[in-house]
Amino acid sequence: MPTLSALPDLSAYRRQCLWAAAVFYALMIGIGSIPGEANELGRFLPDTVLHFTAYGFLSFLLCIGLGPRTGAALVWRVLALIALMGLVDETIQSTLSYRTADIKDWLVDMASAITVTTGFLLAPARR
């Protein structure tokens, strides 16, 4: 059995996940701010599915990136970040004449984050 000093340092991998989350979020905001793009995406998938998938992926990246914390510390950090990111997303939408903000979208964002963080809590301990 390897000792703790023999385990690989995952801090670079975690940083990459946080960068990926930031880039993905910026792309979501950017693409969603282009006139007509959100409506075009909505033709293929319902808005609820888009929000759940996008914020679920963000939650997944944040869970990995904010590791190795586990339990409540990880859950609360991810949920707080997703709540803030969803709020910023909806606030930006409210300022655009061709978009509308909707509290239901934010609730879907939070439901997605809760689903993902619950999965991380229930997953077997990573050694």
Rank of each mutant, 00 (worst) to 15 (best):
R15F: 10
L81T: 10
R99N: 09
R43H: 12
L81P: 01
W76G: 11
D47P: 03
F60G: 00
W19R: 11
L27I: 15
V49F: 14
S94T: 10
R99Y: 09
A125E: 14
Y13D: 05
A54P: 01
F120P: 00
S97R: 09
L87Y: 09
P124G: 13
S5Q: 13
A111R: 01
V78G: 00
S94M: 12
L58N: 01
L27W: 10
L50F: 09
A73K: 11
E90G: 09
A111F: 13
A113L: 08
A125F: 10
I31P: 01
L79H: 06
L50E: 14
Q16P: 00
T48Y: 04
L45G: 03
T3E: 14
Y55T: 05
A123I: 04
F60N: 03
A80R: 04
F24S: 14
L79P: 01
T117A: 10
I114R: 02
C17E: 02
A125V: 15
L84I: 14
L74F: 00
G36I: 04
A20P: 05
S5W: 05
I103N: 06
M85V: 05
S94E: 08
A83D: 00
G67V: 03
S112C: 02
Y98W: 15
P2V: 07
P68H: 06
R15V: 11
L84N: 03
G67F: 01
C17L: 09
A38M: 10
D102S: 14
R127F: 08
P124M: 09
D105W: 04
I29P: 00
M1D: 11
L121C: 12
L45T: 11
G71E: 05
L84Y: 03
A113K: 02
T117E: 04
P2W: 13
S33V: 07
D109V: 05
G36N: 13
M85N: 00
T3D: 11
R14I: 02
A72L: 15
A21D: 08
G36F: 08
L81W: 14
Y25T: 15
L4M: 11
L81A: 10
Q93N: 09
L41P: 00
G56N: 03
T115N: 08
M110I: 15
S94L: 08
S11D: 13
L58E: 02
I92M: 05
I34D: 05
Y55A: 04
R43S: 09
Y55G: 00
L4Y: 11
M85W: 12
L62D: 02
L4P: 06
I29L: 15
L96H: 03
I103L: 15
G32H: 06
A12K: 12
L45F: 15
M28S: 12
L27Q: 08
G86K: 02
R14P: 04
L18Q: 04
K104T: 13
G42N: 13
L84M: 14
I29Q: 08
P124A: 14
A54M: 13
G71T: 04
A123Q: 10
T70E: 13
S5V: 12
D109E: 07
C17Y: 01
P68K: 07
S112M: 07
V108L: 03
D105L: 08
Q93P: 06
L122K: 11
E90F: 09
D109S: 06
P8G: 08
P124Y: 10
T115F: 15
F57Y: 12
L81N: 04
T117W: 01
A123F: 14
L84E: 03
